[in-house]
Design a binder for these strands. Sequence first.
DNA 1: ATATTTTTGCGTATTATTAACACCAACTAT
DNA 2: ATAGTTGGTGTTAATAATACGCAAAAATAT
Lengths: 235, 235
Amino acid sequence: MNRQQYAYEYPHAAVATDCAVFGFDGQNIKILLVKRGIEPYKGLWALPGGFMRMNETTDECIRRELHEETSFLPSVIEQFAVFSAIDRDPRERVVSVAYYSLVRQSEVVGGDDASDARWFALGALPDLAFDHKEILAKALQTLREKIHFEPIGFDLMDRYFTIPDLQRLYEAILGVRFDRRNFMKKILQSGVISESNEGVAAPASRHAGRTPKSYTFNKDVYEAMKGNGRFKMEF
Amino acid sequence: MNRQQYAYEYPHAAVATDCAVFGFDGQNIKILLVKRGIEPYKGLWALPGGFMRMNETTDECIRRELHEETSFLPSVIEQFAVFSAIDRDPRERVVSVAYYSLVRQSEVVGGDDASDARWFALGALPDLAFDHKEILAKALQTLREKIHFEPIGFDLMDRYFTIPDLQRLYEAILGVRFDRRNFMKKILQSGVISESNEGVAAPASRHAGRTPKSYTFNKDVYEAMKGNGRFKMEF
DNA sequence: ATATTTTTGCGTATTATTAACACCAACTAT
DNA sequence: ATAGTTGGTGTTAATAATACGCAAAAATAT
């Protein structure tokens, strides 16, 4: 059987997708990486992703690859850049369509040390395959720019959360500190969250101090504020 | 000679680039289109663009194609989306990396009615080839979102311009009206422009009313404000 | 138990930014 | 000249951002 069965008049690059999956453990931003099982870069860590098939779009491709490699179907994916350096893959010319995704860490299996998918803190990244370090850096930059004028959290926080938790998320992404009381006022009067009487984290498992109230996102208000330029979280 | 000389183990999509080139004539936003000289969609208007070669990145590709089709080398291009619908090109599977660009209309030859490159007002678009109508719509949406938190104008206005001209640009892009006097204050105290004693449009060619002052962009301040989230132009 | 520490929630004074509008200046057309 | 039109400056009121003071609630220490 001929192994070179697909022929074209002009040379073609391969199209692939890669995704920077961000999670939040309540303290720090984490990134989901998978260990490569084949050459090239076998044994190194990489962003989940893979080659596009002829019967799928790039969006469908990255969702399929994420599911295959991390057993997870993300709700939010955003395409943010294309990487097309000529020698970025040693096998052949590969153009990668890059995405980022925000997920609740608890929803992704990973974590198991023996597994080939694991969360890494941004400050403790291993060496990455291909140009994935560059892709990750650009993904993080895009996320940081976006957080200024779009509410973020819905996809990273649990269904029920506290305002101090949400503040820690913003501070972790932006690398700054907010005034507790002003953050609270701002987020409350934006209307994206409202108080909930349903469960908050186990009372005993908390730190010292007063138990914070439990909140949940108003999905309608939240969605309406995406991209309309009216939400602001300065630094 | 074999016309199918490039063979691969797996099927490959072709990679192409397309660019929505925006211009401003002092009154309305215009878009630069080229008339297709070959099938498919021969004779229809399309966004400038074409297939990527093996020795160039997508950025280099779109710059080359723009130069070939419109005799213009743009200073600013931004990659904003990828279009990968399976049947978007009748010839073969094509994944298009989409860009937008902002140019001074005067710098682009086009314009000649007989030529195959022409400016069109957004309200008077012809039928477009492929999915280019969709690409253009998304480009415009991206531009409108970006204008909220990035200064825009440097690439669309002439070197010397007046504040009322700049206001008309913002109003044309956003489709809203600003208060003349507040717009002026806001743009001036942002520091992105400063007064110039050099030429403004010929005094006789103006409308009735007082002759406006001439301004020019402070390139350093302008660049610094891109993407730092500090520039705001609300509506 | 009681005091101490920690953290949350609410309020208030100060400052900065936005928004609305009155008024004068400069130019054109008649 | 006079009316009509457009550009530039200033003033004020409403709104939002910022910086804290202080008490309530819950865990920890004694």
